[in-house]
Design a protein around this nucleic acid. Structure first.
Length: 851
RNA sequence: GCGGACGUGGCGGAACGGUAGACGCUGGGGACUUAAAAUCCUCUUCCCGGAAGGGAGUGCGGGUUCAAAUCCCGCCGUCCGCACCA
């Protein structure tokens, strides 16, 4: 039989067949065990990129494998369709965000379909569909009514380029995650979701996520940043005339105290100062009275929170002249400073400084010559050992600390907290780094926040029967800012409560709200509500979720929160949305630069000998490091022409080969060529002579071992290992003479490659007259008895070094193995007449002779 | 600074503490062909050697073990996350 597998014909043909037979429509009532395989849905930028191809190929292999193993598989696809790029396109090209987004979706859907993914397109959704965001508005109101939403004027991260607010999670090194602009501080009224109410749950829940990467769990744990400690109050010394105290003048007379939070209450006798944040009420009170203080506060606040600012900024403080009373030593006074390193948002917005055992306090004390007093000593130190040129934050025994002396750090912490609680000046408390999630965005292309602002009633929820609050279509993008603010016709409305004049909320949701529940909507999509809990619970939690690690904190934390919030308000009985998580690596490519330093794309350059040159004029090109494919580096490779040239299966196969899926995959022409060759080799095996009688025990064993190994590798998401196994099997089959075993091997091979190269597999299946579609065929079973060889190769070592390998029957006993090894010429030569002192035998593996 | 991951041929990478380098790519040699493409065979960690064979070898230095890429200790390097978090 001659000819070649022709993907141009086969791809279209089988995609059509799967579609017509509704192969991948998930049926909740099939009675089969359910499996929910999900990849992070894409933003409809207009074209798919190699990262999508890799991501969706991995999910597809798993989905198809699970189907073959007898599961009812839910493997849906949709569009994370709201967001800035649509508005940018509107501003740059005058197209409407809706039209732009819709046509992008149509283009990308076609591209995805060409790759033959086993997706249930009947459940496709886009977050910009009113049917989707309307339900989201209702869910938001549910949370609002349950007290999990609040509005507050707060200092926010303002992106001056995108002209919107960013969540803390979206500020990377002090810059906006999309625009890269340095983020400013602004005061705005914002809607917040109470994610901090779930801090403990979200942290503790991580422990149940056994099939998540440790790295991601750790990142989330660090992000939540739980610290256990003591919150306590310092009384402010009021020894002089009351009226002079700044807090009295500032109207704070009722609270002549300052509260601090510490994780090291054991070091309380090492305190040498108290410091408050520049935003602290006490600091403001002082600033109101003292121009120097006001100047200091203003300067401290003007410094950004960017990395450079924080690193280069020296610790500095302003001595207020106020004194705090040590809670355990009433005669002991500590100076109160305003310090630029104290954050108002964390803990109590004030700290007490222990220079000996905290590096930051140490630096501050060194600068202002404050006492540095040891209160913890390591075994090689005592109470009088001076502190060197750095703080000692570690463990030890408490010294110089009255009733705490001799206790361990941990014991002393307990003792101080207990005493504080008994005496009523402090309480055990847990502080978190996590802040509430600000979800307001000053953008058009997002889900409208379903709130109306009434002059007399304040913010009022839009009644359910008026949902969805639709985005108006008559908007203009001819000036910066949010077009909703300028759309009076849409904005003006009446108050649902009093009927008076009111204005709609013009902010829209952060798009991470949209992606916080789409996996639930995939599982159940009734018309009249967001989801039906009993139907959704049949599929959820997602069995395997696959996506990029860049969402380790943002999306994955928000989705966990949203799921738990729905549970708390009784809407869905699921604790964690994603049972298994896999974060795949990026697709990378070499970068190229012309002589003038500009980036060149891979199709502008060619290699002549060892050097790269520009195709147009032959000028030399320098090849740079391998980096993530990106537009700015111009090192992207568009999947579409690759699929045209090699077919979907070769692309899929290459995406799974070589690199372990969690690591980066370097795109190479040679790699895709190799994958295309493999596709043809399989096709030739299935098209070749299938006659032949008789057994081939070696091939049969190889086959059964491969079935076991490939299944195991797919389940562990080690696709590169599955690929290597299949290469070995194909190689062995090509070398084997025709036999019944070989014929059987072809039938099995086709099914083993089906999850990875489904079009090829269908074509082969048809040629060998398999029943129905290979997509519906059961995964081949293996015979455990055939996994073991009856001949083994024994490694023979002398003093741990390999000297010989010997073929031996399986199950040889110690003495026989030893005798066999000692009979080896090579061993005898190494021993040179010496008597073995000891012989180690590992059954069926090796013999080590120690001389 | 804190936390984490990783370090194996020319390259991507395999390797329950038990034959290091599977498999793929690249490269060399060969077969088929008028020629090419396609395909197939073969070699490809390094050093000495014609070969047989020998030696070295998993970032570096120690250790545990009959046996270490794998376990332990200490360095060095690369990457990622967080970052004045009290």
């Amino acid at each position: 039989m001659t000819g070649r597998f022709d993907p141009a014909v086969a791809d279209v043909r089988w995609q059509k067949t799967w579609d017509e037979k509704r192969c991948f429509i998930a049926d909740p009532d099939s009675g089969k065990p359910k499996a929910y395989v999900l990849e992070m849905f894409p933003y409809p930028s207009g074209r798919i990129h190699m990262g999508h191809v890799r991501n969706y190929t991995m999910g597809d292999v798993l989905a198809r494998y699970k189907r073959m193993k007898g599961h009812e598989v839910l493997h849906p696809m949709g569009w994370d369709a709201f967001g800035m790029p649509a508005e940018n396109a509107a501003m740059e090209r005058g197209v409407h965000p809706d039209g732009w987004t819709r046509s992008n979706i149509a283009a990308m859907r076609d591209q995805l379909k060409r790759l033959g993914f086993a997706l249930d397109w009947s459940r496709e959704l886009a977050t910009c569909d009113p049917e989707y965001y309307g339900h989201e508005q209702a869910l938001f109101l549910d949370l609002y009514e349950a007290g999990l939403v609040y509005r507050k004027e707060s200092e926010v991260n303002w992106d001056p380029v995108d002209m919107t607010v960013l969540a803390n999670e979206q500020v990377i090194d002090g810059k906006g995650w999309r625009s890269g602009a340095t983020v400013e501080r602004r005061k705005l009224s914002q809607w917040f979701l109470k994610i901090t109410d779930f801090a403990d749950e979200l942290l503790d829940g991580l422990e149940s996520l056994e099939d998540w990467p440790d790295k991601v769990k750790l990142m989330q744990a660090n992000w939540i940043g739980r610290s256990d400690g003591l919150r306590f109050r310092f009384k402010l010394a009021a020894d002089g005339a009351d009226a002079d105290y700044p807090w009295v003048k500032a109207g704070l007379a009722a609270a002549p105290e300052v509260e601090v939070f510490t994780t090291r209450p054991d070091t309380i006798f090492g305190a040498s100062f108290v410091a408050v944040a520049p935003d602290h009420p006490l600091a403001r009170a002082v600033a109101a009275e003292n121009p120097d203080a006001a100047k200091f506060v203003a300067e401290a606040r003007s410094v950004g929170t960017s990395e450079e600012a924080v690193e280069s900024q020296e610790k500095s403080g302003f001595l207020t002249g106020i004194e705090a009373v040590h809670p355990l030593e009433p005669e002991w006074r500590l100076p109160v400073w305003i310090a630029n390193f104290v954050l108002m948002e964390y803990g109590a917005g004030a700290v007490f400084g222990v220079p000996a055992h905290d590096q930051r306090d140490f630096e501050f004390a060194s600068k202002y010559e404050l006492p540095i007093r040891r209160v913890v000593a390591r075994p090689d130190q005592d109470a009088s050992t001076p502190i060197g040129d750095a703080a000692e934050p570690g463990e030890g025994v408490i010294v110089n600390s009255k009733f705490l002396d001799g206790l361990s750090v941990e014991e002393a912490q307990d003792a101080v907290i207990r005493r504080a609680e008994e005496q009523g000046w402090g309480t055990r408390e847990t502080a978190y780094r996590l802040r509430d999630w600000g979800v307001s965005r000053q953008r058009y292309w997002g889900t409208p926040i379903p709130i109306v602002h009434c002059n007399s009633c304040g913010p009022v929820a839009v009644p359910r029967d008026q949902l969805p609050v639709l985005l108006p279509t008559d908007v203009s993008f001819d000036m910066p800012g949010n077009p909703l603010d300028r759309n009076e016709g849409w904005r003006r409305t009446s108050c649902p409560e009093c009927g008076g004049e009111a204005l709609r909320e013009t902010d829209t949701f952060d798009t991470f709200v949209d992606s916080s529940w789409y996996f639930i909507r995939f599982a159940s999509q009734p018309i009249d509500k967001a989801f039906d809990p009993s139907e959704a619970e049949q599929w959820l939690p997602v069995g395997q979720y696959i996506g990029g690690v860049e969402h380790a904190i943002l999306h994955l934390l928000y989705a966990r929160f949203w799921t738990r919030a729905l549970r708390r308000i009784g809407r869905l009985d699921i604790e964690e949305p994603f049972n298994g998580l896999f974060t795949q690596g990026m697709v990378t490519h070499e970068t190229y630069r012309a002589g003038d330093g500009s980036w060149l794309s891979p199709d502008e350059v060619t290699k002549t000998g060892d050097d790269w040159v520009r195709i147009v004029d032959g000028t030399p090109v320098s090849s740079g490091r391998v980096e993530k494919m990106s537009k700015s580096r111009r090192n992207t490779v568009d999947p579409e022409p690759i699929v045209d040239k090699y077919g979907a299966d070769a692309v899929r196969w290459f995406m799974l080969s070589d690199s372990p899926p969690e690591r980066d995959l370097e795109w190479s022409e040679a790699g895709i060529e190799g994958a295309a060759r493999f596709v043809q080799r399989v096709w030739r095996l299935a098209s070749g002579d299938t006659g032949g009688e008789g057994k081939d025990r070696d091939l049969q064993r190889k086959l059964h071992r491969t079935i076991a190994a490939v299944g195991e590798a797919i389940e562990a998401l080690q696709f590169n290992k599955a690929v290597a196994q299949l290469y070995e099997l194909v190689s062995a089959m090509e070398k084997a003479a025709p036999s019944a075993a070989r014929t059987e091997a072809v039938r099995v091979l086709v099914r083993l490659v089906a999850p990875m190269a489904p079009h090829l597999a269908e074509d082969c299946w048809e040629r060998i007259r398999g029943d129905g579609l290979v997509a519906d065929a059961p995964w081949p079973a293996f015979d455990p008895a055939l996994l073991v060889e009856d001949q083994v190769i024994l490694a023979v070592q002398v003093n741990g070094k390999l000297r010989d390998t010997l073929r031996a029957p399986r199950g040889l006993d110690r003495a026989a193995a030893e005798a066999l090894a000692l009979a080896s010429d090579k061993v005898q030569r190494q021993l040179a007449g010496a008597e073995p002192r000891k012989v180690i035998v590992v059954a069926d593996r090796l013999v080590n002779i120690v001389a």
